[in-house]
Design a protein around this nucleic acid. Structure first.
Lengths: 211, 211, 211, 211
DNA sequence: TATGAATGAGCCTTCATTCAT
DNA sequence: CATGAATGAAGGCTCATTCAT
């Protein structure tokens, strides 16, 4: 089941006329940025409305409740991350190692260009601990990511570029764990953290033909 | 500079008599558990007071503000994590590999016995993104942990048990990243996540005499 | 500089529709009466809202803070006193003595019909001691009053009705002092205080062609 | 009835040992200064206790309630003003004009050296509007003052120094009104207000042998 | 679609006061 | 006498939400 199923339920007003769609998007983006700035703890519907240049009542016309708005932000994040690797998947097809390197490098790049993405992601992650709906969506996202990594790792193992491990899912999960940990690390220490040498380290581990 | 410097500044109000000290601790624990349950977003001073079985005014007698209380929780976390490895440091001295294994196993163990610890830790981590005071304390904590890992990794390398790498700090950071990622993973997937096989994987990486 | 400059700054929140303007006025009047009854010391926003028949949140919709509301009351007082002598200024033009008598008589009349005016005025006066913003407005009010008195005193002196004193400002200030003192006296002793004979006294002083 | 009757009722703990008496006085003085600084509106028992260097509970040992403390301040003011003219009464006996001049000059002098006296006095005056107990004490004070002025005015009239008016009480009340008004004036305009010329004015009025 | 006005519920904080020690 | 601890009762303010227009 795809998490995007939730989208229909959240939609109330707007979204039919082009202007309505744009307005909704505007509000979701405003919420996204405010969550990044203040966290869920500091998220106020009034601020969201103001940032989107509309009245609070207007916000409630588009989103029945604050929860609805948040769900829309979750969907937005889902979209962004789900479509994340489409480009690489095609451009780097049959070059597993390059695809892997690209993925690692992308973490640092994204942090520099749009740190909000990770901040909101962790906020969402924390929300998932308490909210089953979000938990499901996040898990879904995690699974999609897992599957994506699996495609190139599988090819890499087949090509003999990556280590010859029978348990590919374990390899993939290890990669995910490393990237997740890296995100926390970069969030805490910023540019100080030695991305390149660390990435070389995990690459060595993944490519080393041990055993 | 040690983050424990902050403790004196935060301590105001009651807490001069032994009973007062105990009461303070009670309130901090109550806050700790409520943060784990509801997050900072859902933390209410009234709930904290109620859980500690005192009047709200009493809470404010011990902590001038909600922020003060939160800072005390941060200190509490600091204490707990700072003193975490004292026991191992002595019992497993000169057995670096065992110390490393113990550390990894401890993550799963702690999650089972006291998951609040990690939940609050990540909440604090998110707070640190916005609050420089907490940022400093968290960074300090991270550094302490780094130093601890470094002691046994250094010995392990010297003994030839671990990989002969010249950049020990990089090894340590890698270990930290792996553990941080593991915590996120376990928080998301719970017991499903294959702790033992994953730990074996990182251990192999750390002990493998490559290059 | 006119103290009415402050009015624009203080006006925030509701009050864009005619109904909103009326509601604001209602709240200001409620506050005015409550200050007269209980003083600033006993002024409670909840009471103000109740007296204006609205929710406390509604009060805060019109006035961001209690201070804002108080400033609006100050402006209200300013309006009332600034426009006080418009009528006399025209009706009694060229009859300085009558204008002076009217002013004195008005103190007693106002005390009988709307004592709140003086009570709030003295409360404001006390506030001005500590609040520079109010200090300025009150000083402005005092100056306006001074100028008004000066118009008829000047004419009176020119006509030979009042004492031939070169320092007219001193005469005016003396009149103001006498009236201020009278207000305190009447507030303390009520109707007992011999208004007519006292007024006759100051009038004699003002009209007596000494030196 | 003398207003000092109220003193017995207010006294609770302390006041028997010399130390107790001193402690009470200390607290009253602290309250006096704080009222001058913040007004009744901003008077906090905690602040009073702190300024007197004792615990809040200690304050409540000496004064049953905040009202009690305030009453003690009123008594203190009463004492100070009641004994105000003792010195002059003797030193300047048989020199009514000098006594009058001294009284006027004293207003400016006191404002310069201890403005708190007037500020608290007006605060008390406002309180009297609502509190009958204080109203009585203030009226009593006012009467005492009236009687004092009357002594020298009577002599002055008899000696032919002051105006030959049959209604001496009216003269006295006029003087009081002038002084009260002057106090408000000086509180509002500070040193700018032309004390000497104003005082000369009232003196001329009082000494001028009209009618 | 959009908004000005309104509100119930609740939040953090303060304050005078009490009491056991 | 003195104080640390505790509290009931507010008090100012905020917030998501509703509704008439």
């Amino acid at each position: 089941m795809s998490a995007s199923d939730a989208s229909g339920a959240a939609r109330r007003g707007g979204g039919r006329t082009p202007h309505g769609v744009a307005q909704r998007r505007e509000l979701v983006l405003a919420a996204f940025h405010l969550i990044a700035e203040k966290g869920f703890e500091g998220l106020r519907t009034r601020d969201v409305a103001q940032r989107a240049d509309v009245n609070i009542a207007t916000l409630h016309y588009y989103f029945h409740s604050k929860e609805d708005l948040i769900r829309a932000v979750v969907e937005y994040m889902h979209e962004r991350f789900a479509s994340l690797h489409e480009a690489e998947r095609q451009a780097l097809y049959d070059q597993p190692l390059e695809e892997f390197r690209h993925e690692l490098a992308d973490v640092v790049f994204k942090w520099r260009t749009e740190p909000q993405l990770y901040i909101v992601m962790v906020e969402l992650f924390m929300r998932a601990v308490r909210d089953p709906v979000i938990q499901r969506i996040m898990a879904d996202l995690d699974l999609h990511w897992h599957e994506y990594i699996k495609t190139y790792v599988t090819r890499g193992v087949a090509q003999g570029v990556f280590r010859q491990d029978s348990d590919i899912d374990l390899l993939v999960t290890s990669v995910q764990i490393f990237i997740k940990g890296s995100i926390l690390e970069i969030m805490m220490h910023g540019e100080q953290f030695p991305a390149e040498r660390l990435n070389a380290e995990i690459e060595r581990w993944l490519t080393h033909h041990a055993r």
